[in-house]
Structures are given as structure tokens and as C-alpha cells.
Design a protein around this nucleic acid. Structure first.
Lengths: 236, 236
DNA sequence: TGTATTTTTCTTGTCGACAAATAAAATACA
DNA sequence: TGTATTTTATTTGTCGACAAGAAAAATACA
């Protein structure tokens, strides 16, 4: 082995403020896709070596992730990917259903014409993923679709909470879809279309009702997966 | 002026993890009490000198505060206390009213016996502040009272959003009470008592209704202050 | 005098190093 | 052999220093 890099390290330089964002995005994606499963230890030094930067920007990214509840930090000890409380998902479901409702309702009330193409774009991406039976893309595009609706509702407080819930939902769904290759039914695509129509028509009450029903469908679907999984666990 | 500290700097040492929390709490309090008004620049070096520590823990505290929306950071440039969008407080009011409702409802549903003494304690603190016509303590204890109710509701997603809204509310109220020495009416104390009763009785619907009415009262009160202030602004 | 360009200053972002706190390993002791 | 104590090792929290980026100041030019 020689001292000279095989690639002669041509461009090891990054732009000045990009380090933190790079680490943040990388870790966030790996956490949400369960590449880093809940409970995984996160080693600052190791990350620093891998990404060829000092610990400082990595530390800042970790602080931000901790603020969003994606990692847990034990003082003076280890830091690890946040666990999911599978024994009591009710608070999560409660918050998720309410935010589905509220953001859909507000989108019907406050959206601007330029919002609709964006929402429709994610809707089509989602439909394509359903067609292709690509569960992972379905999970991600579904979250993006509803996040876009929330943006159109123009309430940053609701939007930020909803994004956090959708992120957590990605982790939960990913956990079950990777083992069972389940898929969202076509029904969800149709419901998305109906939601878009209600928003475009500025029909607030219908949007509210559809948002709530859609959310409860999803919760029910997840709970079904859970029940089946628990039965299997017991059977084994 | 001599080089020797007047106090001989006897214990300049802090415990290891306490630096960040100290800075965070200090800045948070100063921001919420408008000691640092919206738009104030925050100088890392200056803070480091004042608190006799390096910039690293200060930076970490700033990252956390930015994550909570209390400060804004411009890349490679200044960082300053987050502004308040006075021209459009509707999203704030919408979110505030909904969280008042939801947290009060959930408290009626999920509280445990040990939660009630805590809630009643803040209730008494608030009543005392009203009696003493101490506007600042009223603002703070009112927020603490409702945060305690949210905790009893045991939904961390709602609680964290609600805390953020209550923080923002402290800033808004503080701005107006410091100029007009207005005060919350006795009515709010009575409403608080009724809310506690509904929670203790586990009367979910009543708690929901009272929480909503109480929130709308507060929003109306704030909007009244705004209207009066705007009239004065125009008159001047 | 007004505008464009260069220089300076000031603040932030990143780095490498060191010390404290904890966990793990090793040792002593019963 | 089992428990308590010391020692080692690993990881975090903090520090001081330096360089990049942008604003402000100074200069050049019309």
C-alpha cells in the first residue's frame, strides 16, 4: 500500500457552508429509510473520517437532528438513532389524523393557483409508484404529496409538525413494508384525486372530511399490518 | 483599571455539559421577555466573552434556538432574533386555538392523578399574578399552566408544538403589555378553574368546548390590543 | 460629485488538539 | 469464585486558532 491516494484526491474541497447540510441530509435519509435502524449508535469520529471533515460540522448536524427527535443523545455518552414506541402509537396516530385534516382544510382555504401543479406532480409520482408496486417510492411520494398540500395551506406551525409526523410515518411504514411487500391499494390514489379536486374547488368542508377519512384509512392500514405482524410474532 | 479581577475569579469552572444549557436558557429567556427584541443581532464572540466560554457551546445553543424558530441565521453573515409577522398573525392564532382545544381535551382523557396538583399549582400562581396586577408573571404562569395541561394529555407531538406557540405568545403579549399595562381579566382565572374541573371530571367534551372558548377569548383580547395600538399608530 | 473597484474589517465555518466523563477491562481481595 | 476497586480506553465537550465569505470603508476614476 502506498502513501499516495489512488485518485490523487483532486477536489477534496467543499463549499464553505455545505458540510453541515451534507451530513444532515445524509443522516436524515439513512434514518428515515432505516439504513440506520432505531437504536443504531452514531459515532462522530467515524463519520468525520468517512466524510473527510472535522467533527464540528457533524456535531452541528447531530444537534439539529436531535432537535427534530430523530436521534437521542445521552450526555457524555453515546448518541443513537431514536427509537420508535411501537407499544403506544396512539399519540402518533392522533396527531397524524388531525394534521391530515387541518392541512387539507387549510389548503382548500388558502392555496394559490401555483400550488396545484406541484401537488398534482407528486400525485402522479405516487400513482406511478403504486402502478410499479414500488413500496419505498410510494412511501416517500405519499409523504411529499401531503407535505405539498400542507405548504399550500400556508400555516408554518402545522406544516412543520406535519412534516415531522410524515417523517416518523416513513420509518414506521418502511419497517413493515420491507418485511411484507405490502402495498397501498389503488383506493389511496383515488382518494388523493378526490382531495385535489376538493382543494381546487375551495370546498373546505369536503376537503376536511376527505382528509380525515383518508388519514383514518391509512391508520387502519398500518394497524392491520401491526396486528398481522403481532400474530406472526406470537406464532413463532 | 487593573488587570486583576475584582472578584479574584474564584470559581470560573462550570460542569462539563452545563455550558450549552446555560447559554440556551439565558438567550431563550431574554428572547421571550423581549430583553432581546425581534431583529436584535446576536454576536457569538461577544457572548463568548461575556459568559467566559468558547464559541463552541454558544454555537450549539444557537443551532438549537434556530431549530425552534427563535432566531434566524443568515449563512456567513449575521444571526439575529427572529422577527414576528405582525401583519399576519392568523396562522399563529389558528394553531394556538387548535392546540388549546386538543391539549385540554386530551388532558381530560389521559391525565393521571398526580398531574392535577401540578396544574392547580400553576393555576394558583396565575391567580396570584392577576391579583397582584403583575402582567409579566401573568404571561409566564399562564403559559406554564397550559403547558402543564398539555403534558397531562400525554401527546408529545402536540405538547412540543403547543410549547412553541406559547413561547411565541409570550413574545407577542409582552410587546403589548409593556406599553399598555393591560391585564388579563379575572374572567380568565375563572375559566381556568372551569377547565381544571372538566379535566378532573374526565368530561372530554366540556374540556374541549372550554378550551376552545378560552383560546378564542385570548385571541380576541390580543386582537383588541392590536386594534387599539394600530389606531394610536395612525393617530400619531 | 457620483459611480465603480479595490481594500479592509468583521463575522462565521471549520479544524485539530486536549481534557473530562463514562464504560470496559484488569486487578486486588475476600 | 465472586465482588469491590483500580486502571485503561473510548467518546464526548470545550478550547483557541485560522481561513473563507460578505459587508463596509476607502480609493480610483469618470
Amino acid at each position: 500500500m502506498t502513501d499516495i491516494d489512488t485518485d490523487n484526491s483532486p477536489i477534496p474541497e467543499r463549499k464553505r457552508g455545505s458540510g453541515v447540510k451534507m451530513v444532515y441530509d445524509l443522516l436524515r435519509d439513512e434514518i428515515l429509510d432505516l439504513v440506520l435502524p432505531p437504536g443504531s449508535p452514531i459515532d462522530e469520529v467515524q463519520l468525520a473520517e468517512r466524510l473527510k471533515m472535522s467533527r464540528t460540522p457533524i456535531r452541528e448536524a447531530l444537534v439539529r437532528l436531535a432537535g427534530e427527535g430523530l436521534i437521542d443523545t445521552l450526555p457524555n455518552r453515546s448518541t443513537m438513532v431514536a427509537n420508535i414506541d411501537f407499544l403506544n402509537l396512539n399519540p402518533f396516530f392522533d396527531a397524524l389524523v388531525l394534521m391530515y385534516r387541518v392541512t387539507t382544510r387549510l389548503a382548500a382555504q388558502n392555496h394559490r393557483p401555483e400550488d396545484l401543479p406541484i401537488i398534482r406532480g407528486f400525485h402522479e409520482d405516487y400513482a406511478a409508484a403504486v402502478q410499479a408496486r414500488d413500496a419505498l417510492t410510494m412511501i416517500a411520494t405519499n409523504a411529499a404529496f401531503h407535505a405539498a398540500i400542507a405548504e399550500a395551506g400556508r400555516n408554518p406551525y402545522f406544516t412543520s409538525l406535519f412534516r415531522r409526523l410524515l417523517d416518523e410515518g416513513r420509518r414506521i411504514l418502511r419497517l413493515y413494508y420491507q418485511s411484507y411487500e405490502e402495498q397501498f391499494p389503488q383506493r389511496f390514489v383515488d382518494e388523493h384525486a378526490a382531495i385535489i379536486a376538493a382543494i381546487a374547488a375551495r370546498d373546505i368542508e369536503t376537503a376536511d372530511r376527505l382528509g380525515k377519512a383518508h388519514a383514518e384509512q391509512i391508520v387502519e392500514q398500518v394497524q392491520k399490518l401491526f396486528a398481522r405482524n403481532n400474530k406472526l410474532d406470537i406464532a413463532l
